[in-house]
Design a protein around this nucleic acid. Structure first.
Lengths: 198, 198
DNA sequence: TGTACATCAGTGAACGCGCGTTCACTGATGTAC
DNA sequence: TGTACATCAGTGAACGCGCGTTCACTGATGTAC
């Protein structure tokens, strides 16, 4: 017997998909209030349930945090891929596109951006998070793999681009990337020359 | 009348230099417990006074935070300058030295490193913090000024080096800068070639 | 098709915690005379 | 040198807050028969 009535103003005892609703609520709180605003009680309130309800779906606050981070990593990888695909076939443009996606995510979701990196040391606690993180890194690594930016192998190349874009994202968030005249410094202007590999 | 007796086990009503003691206690808490461990009450306890005492020296928690950040920025600039001076006269070596100092500070004081950058938007609230921040940036900017790393003027060059070293610091903190075989990626290996200016 | 019942997903009250802040107070300091 | 006194820097109790978590409970779901 499925509860298939459509009356929106009913308050059924069962929510239907509270787990998803709590993740969404958490993402909204993160966006609106920042890291400090994300609590179990507030996520529950935003999802329209009592503060004790989340315990049935997540292993404490940490469980919700990791689930949100997993979602965030997926969004992150999605944004990088989307920008890459919009960039045509040229490997240089594709790498720049990925960096644009990286920076767009950091700019549009600053608190989530912080959260996902702060959870990277606990990927063993949540398989989704581990997978999404690996996927995001893979997107960057693949794009970098077509270039020889520094001697020392692919790991070093990835580290260089990643450091550059990650540092730029952090500094831009602090408004530290503006020239004295107030204009922003575009990311492309700090990219080193990119030599194709082989 | 100066209280000049030297008995250490006395507990005088007046502390003597509680302001400094609270800053030191805050730095210790930050080092031992991280950002979450830094509270007014714990700093007071560590300084050996009641939890209400700090109110006589700082404008709430925010006041203590900014004072600690100012101290942190000074330590940061000191470390960069010290490494620069240990590097001899060659501008390339001096810039590398400054980056070593930057990374040493980030590695030795991770929570403080986070704190100082998180306060950069509130430098108008604390003149010491503003001065220390400006000084730290000046150390980096001066060292970069001898090079032409990217077209676009000094601001762009500074942004490039800063992004690179800042991103490297953040990723290293997350243990994201190790090759598959477990070896670390040295910062120098991701530095682009440095052409002297003019 | 109907009914008994186990399971699931909520509720609301209560718990203890640590926090920042305020307040009347008290003891020490140091200055005016 | 001594004394009165204003000021300063502490104390300890109390406040309200929001938090995560637990618990007995209840209503809804869905399955076995």
């Amino acid at each position: 017997m499925v509860c298939d009535d459509e009356r929106m103003d009913e308050k059924p005892h069962h929510h239907g998909n509270l787990r998803e609703a709590l993740i969404s609520a958490g993402l909204e709180l993160l966006a609106k209030e920042g890291t400090e605003g994300l609590t179990l009680r507030r996520a529950a309130a935003r999802a329209g349930v009592s503060h004790a309800a989340p315990a049935h779906h997540f292993a404490g606050k940490e469980g919700l945090l990791l689930a949100i981070a997993a979602r965030g990593f997926t969004m992150f990888a999605d944004m990088m891929e989307a920008e890459r695909e919009r960039s045509g076939p040229d490997p240089v443009e594709r790498l720049k596109g990925i960096c644009r996606g990286y920076l767009a995510f950091a700019g549009q979701h600053p608190a989530l951006f912080e959260l996902i990196f702060s959870t990277m040391g606990r990927t063993d606690k949540n398989a989704d998070l581990a997978n999404a993180g690996t996927r995001a890194y893979g997107v960057l690594a693949e794009a970098v793999s077509h270039f020889e930016l520094a001697p020392g192998g692919p790991g070093v190349n990835e580290a260089m681009v990643w450091s550059l874009v990650h540092g730029y994202a952090g500094l831009r968030q602090m408004k530290r990337l503006e020239l004295p005249d107030g204009t922003a410094i575009p990311f492309e202007s700090i990219l080193p020359p990119m030599k194709p590999r082989l």
